[in-house]
Design a protein around this nucleic acid. Structure first.
Lengths: 338, 338
DNA sequence: CTGAAAGCGCTTACAG
DNA sequence: CTGAAAGCGCTTACAG
């Protein structure tokens, strides 16, 4: 068989058709599997593709199919503190999953409520679907996308009732961790510090915490529960109060709160877990590396990414997807609560 | 003026041409600025674009120009420890810069030496250029890309002599930080712990450290210098030795080493900076949040990303770019060395 | 099972 | 300064 393609140029459909003396139509069908092609012809095409090292020009394919083979992923650009690894992992597992199905992953940065990058991708019609890794509180991302008739999936809560979403079992996790702590501490000795309650995730955390008390039949020690704690000053004051109340175990809403708490404790000469036990409703490398390592709830960002990507691709390819998918959690019992 | 486009369909070039009674050629030229168009016609086209809310189909444009308007960014999927924020910030600033120039950013995950995602993007010809955020030691990424005749830029060192690269001034930074420490410590009291010396960055760090001693006229206390320290056990032993040698100041090669060191110190009941001073050649949130905050060298990931992206786009658009661009650093003097 | 031809929405040499 | 027409590399109704 002679090489038809000019030196240096990459082969295209026509080269294969010529080499085999058949039409481009047949070659195209042999590759895509759409329409009938005899097994023999199909095999010749496949062999020839190998020999000529053919690989389709995806832009041409995109153009003719009116399909980009791109998934846009909205990632917050201004993630604070320890959030970066979460979004990284999400993005990477999405991209891995997409790549396996021959889609590319386009990054869409979102700084606060600035949706200009999202708008750009939507206008230029360069994505077949959008994954939102952190929806805004006002649902504006979802609305913008839905307005362009592009399918989307969110990770975490969405204010939009018809959003397809994937999330972690925050409430159940928090309930389980609290239940564990209730086994080793007097209920009245447990304290809770949560961040802003306008965030759904913090409300879920509080629900899980409450549920565990309810299940155990114990009363929630209301004076040890601090919601909406945001600034460092508030936090410092909160820790002071918890210590004054002789609290033996502090549950922190997330890793950032937790790090701040242990810093306060260490500055007061209190040691973990001898003087006080500490746990966090959200894990991060910080908590794992701290000395002593801190008990925490872990939600797998990688699985969230993979699941979401698979869902997105299913939707694009016309299968239907469940409106809600909830993934599990892991309880990492470490030295801070022993 | 009447709306020509059918309801619900997005306008295209032809709609504008018809609405204005001119040819698509002219409309195209008015938009791109290529070829002469009278100012009046141009203005009418621009007005009509607004009115019809026209926005070009980028895939069609791509196809006809044989240009994707995509930049591929290779990001390590298996970044360890605190590296995530660095690559995140790089990626995000690249995407922001690209978006401003109407390019999209395609994520290419690289797990170890697995280049399958990179290969895919290259084969499908879906990127006009590639940015490598962390080249492999064997130059295989660069070679793969160069073999496909696609331009690329690396962040950090590259083994390939003709790579265009952007990097931080590691050596200079380490020299300056060491010089600062030499002002407040006896040269013989300073210790250094560096990771694997097969990494160029660690060699640069050592060079900077040495240079500072040379400049000050002091001798390097060889017995306090530990290179190639990797495991936790090695590290623990190293700290023991430095303490036995009555070392008053430990410089850590990076933030992970530094965190491990402070953990060892705290377990030995040593306090920073009273008993021993600590500094790191690489900053991260950990060091900033630690109590006390730790003196470190900061390299701006955002600037690296922006600069690299701008360079990449310049190359793609035919301008020529310097082979090497070195960005500065910041010295964050914090309580750990006071 | 196979093919000729139209079409996807732009850009651009070529001719005026 | 402007336009008719070809072309980018695929897919797919339509006809056989």
């Amino acid at each position: 068989m002679t090489r038809i393609t000019a030196q240096g140029k990459t082969a295209q459909l026509e080269d294969i058709a010529k080499a085999l003396g058949i039409s481009k139509t047949t070659v195209s069908r042999a590759i895509s599997g759409k329409g009938r092609v005899s097994a023999a012809t199909r095999q010749r095409v496949l062999d020839c593709i190998k020999e000529l090292n053919y690989s389709p020009n995806m832009i041409a394919k995109s153009f003719s199919e009116s399909k980009t083979y791109n998934i846009g992923v909205v990632v917050p650009m201004d993630n604070v503190g320890t959030e970066a690894p979460f979004f990284q992992t999400c993005l990477m597992s999405i991209s891995k999953c997409c790549a396996l199905r021959n889609y590319d992953t386009v990054v869409i940065g979102a700084e606060g409520s600035d949706l200009s990058q999202l708008r750009r991708v939507l206008e230029s019609r360069k994505a077949d679907g959008i994954i939102i890794t952190r929806p805004l509180q006002d649902g504006s991302m979802e609305q913008l996308i839905a307005g362009k008739n592009v399918p989307y999936v969110t990770i975490g809560e969405s204010t939009e009732p018809d959003a397809v979403r994937v999330d972690s079992a925050h409430k159940e996790g928090c309930c389980e961790l609290t239940a564990y702590l209730l086994m080793n501490n007097r209920p009245a000795d447990i304290g809770l510090i949560l961040g802003g309650m306008e965030q759904t995730v913090n409300r879920s955390r509080y629900e899980g915490f409450s549920k565990a008390f309810e299940n155990s039949g114990a009363l929630i020690p209301a004076k040890n529960v601090f919601l909406g704690v945001k600034s460092d000053i508030q936090l410092r004051r909160t820790v002071d109060e918890l210590l004054r109340a002789d609290c033996g175990c502090i549950i922190c809403g997330d890793d950032m709160i937790c790090m701040a708490v242990v810093n306060v404790l260490s500055s007061l000469g209190k040691s973990v877990p001898q003087d006080i036990r500490i746990a966090s409703f959200y894990d991060s490398l910080y908590l794992d590396m701290y000395s002593p390592p801190i008990t925490a709830l872990k939600f797998k960002a990688g699985e969230l990414g993979t699941t979401t990507a698979a869902l997105m691709l299913d939707i694009i390819e016309g299968r239907n997807a469940p409106a809600e998918t909830i993934l599990g959690f892991e309880m990492l019992i470490r030295r801070s609560t022993m």
